[in-house]
């Protein structure tokens, strides 16, 4: 079964009615989608945690999905919210441990591009997006990020702070 909008919406309708099999199927389809949305948006060590966190949020907030509206934009909003929250809490990591499992993009690239996290980062001014990628996603230290991006250390901190704040305010926007 393909994870298209109509199928996912039908399964979510059944899940809201308490159909455990349909719900398991839905989660089984949503998990790989989330994996692909989040890949390279958090450190690989955090990927599973973030996907699990998002599935829990889907479970807890499933009543907030309106069956009259599409499912994927709802899922994307929940996913972005958890992702931005995760970035805010992320600590600086060892850059050497990152991205050793880069995967091939799927045929759903267009969908991922429209709903995924890149688009949210793309709403930020270049220096803010670059600082967040370097410090919060790739795990560079502030000093390393400053050297790579040609920004001062204080500017890196300011750009990360302002960028995350702006992303949190624009979680459901799609420009």
């Amino acid at each position: 079964m393909t994870s298209d909008e109509a199928t996912l919406a039908r399964l979510m309708c059944a899940a809201q009615a308490g159909d455990a099999m349909a719900y398991r199927q839905l989660l089984g389809m949503a998990a790989p989608l989330l994996m692909r949305w989040f890949r390279r948006k958090v450190a690989p060590a955090d990927l599973d945690d973030l996907v699990q966190d998002t599935l829990l949020a889907v479970h807890q907030r499933r009543a907030s999905w309106d069956p009259a509206r599409p499912f994927l934009p709802w899922l994307a909003a929940i996913a972005r919210y958890r992702w931005v929250d995760r970035l805010r809490r992320a600590r600086v990591r060892d850059a050497d441990a990152l991205f050793d499992d880069i995967a091939v993009e799927s045929g759903e690239a267009a969908l991922i591009g429209r709903l995924g996290c890149d688009r949210l980062l793309g709403m930020l001014p270049g220096p803010q997006a670059a600082a967040i990628r370097a410090v919060k996603i790739e795990g560079l230290s502030v000093i390393e990020a400053a050297a790579r991006l040609g920004q001062s250390e204080s500017m890196i901190k300011v750009n990360v702070h302002r960028g995350l704040k702006r992303m949190a305010a624009a979680v459901d926007e799609d420009r």
């Binding site: 455990a20 829990l56 479970h59 907030s64 999905w65 309106d66």
Partner: peptide
């Protein structure tokens, strides 16, 4: 992840859409 999804599916109860 599979265990989490199994557990969530087992726990699912009907909800009234908001």
């Amino acid at each position: 992840l599979d265990a989490l999804m199994d557990r969530l599916a087992a726990d699912v109860a009907p909800v009234q859409p908001l």
